[in-house]
Amino acid sequence: MNRTVLITGASSGIGQACALVLAKEGYRLALCARRTERLEALKNEILQDLPETEIYTFTLDVRDADAVQQAMTALPEAWQQIDVLINNAGLSQGLDPIQSGKLSDWDTMIDTNIKGLLYVSRAVIPLMESSKNAHIINIGSIAGKEVYPNGNVYCATKHAVDALNKAMRIDLLEKGIRVSAIHPGMVETEFSEVRFHGDTDRAKAVYKGVDALSGQDIAEVIAFVLSRRAHININDLLIMPTAQATGTIVNRK
């Protein structure tokens, strides 16, 4: 394999699951996130099971454009060709109607989900141009396909990811870089806990009675998308739990 994948937001959730699944597929892993301790724990977990895996970890807040550029410029020589970029870093904060939404929540979502994706993509794409099998995976959401009550700004940011994915597909066509969007429905990770600012009881209620998707479910789909032959590009995938029909219509047992 020997393909090098860079995963943002790799310390938890879908990003962490991608690291675990792709390590088993033989990828070299460049992992970044804000939580250094969790990155190191993930690295140790992978190396315990797969000691030959090549892993490079670094702390990064994708909202900081200068830090993103500096981190990519400072990559060791052995990590300066990136074959796969997984733009996973993203979050939701708050679930308030637009007239009473918190500006700090809006800024965090816009800065992470849109601007962070742009900063990382702009810095990493030049490192992908020498790859013969380059692929960008953008993690979107069902919220990028529809709008649900009180989802306003989060939905707007994921609609932006959907649009940027389409734009990247066009702009990078002549470079031979494949671009795919993965849009999950309910995935039981830290997502709701972050959305509700640490309110674990409220977060648990989101998934009550639902066999939700796991980070591993999404990571396995991403591994499939990445494994297609070079002439195949899966542009867009919407993945839902069987119990979920739309963003808000869910069959709870």
Rank of each mutant, 00 (worst) to 15 (best):
S92K: 14
V68W: 06
L6V: 11
N138A: 03
I218C: 01
A30P: 00
A17K: 00
E77F: 00
P51V: 09
A203Q: 14
H231S: 09
M128W: 04
N150K: 05
R63Q: 15
A67G: 08
E77P: 02
Q216C: 03
G13E: 04
P76C: 02
I7R: 05
D64G: 05
K175T: 08
R63A: 13
R202M: 14
I218H: 00
L20P: 06
V225F: 09
R229Q: 14
M128G: 14
I218Y: 01
D61M: 14
I46C: 01
S12P: 06
E174F: 09
V210N: 06
A17G: 03
N87R: 06
R228Q: 15
I142R: 11
V120H: 11
G140C: 10
L226M: 08
I142T: 05
L50M: 14
T189L: 02
G90M: 00
G140H: 08
N2D: 10
A212H: 00
L127S: 02
V210T: 03
L42G: 13
G116R: 11
G198N: 00
A41V: 10
H183W: 04
T200E: 15
N152D: 13
I139E: 11
A203M: 14
R28E: 08
D217W: 07
Q80K: 12
Q70G: 07
S100E: 14
I222L: 09
E25A: 13
H159A: 11
H231F: 12
P97N: 05
V62F: 05
I170W: 11
K24H: 14
A30G: 04
A163Y: 06
M186N: 09
D236A: 00
S214V: 00
I139D: 12
V250G: 02
L164K: 09
V5H: 04
R28A: 11
V147H: 10
K253I: 09
A134S: 15
T112F: 02
A30W: 03
I222Q: 06
R202E: 14
V68Q: 07
S227W: 01
R3D: 03
D96S: 13
D96Y: 02
N133W: 13
I232T: 06
I136S: 01
D66E: 15
N251L: 07
I182H: 09
M186Q: 08
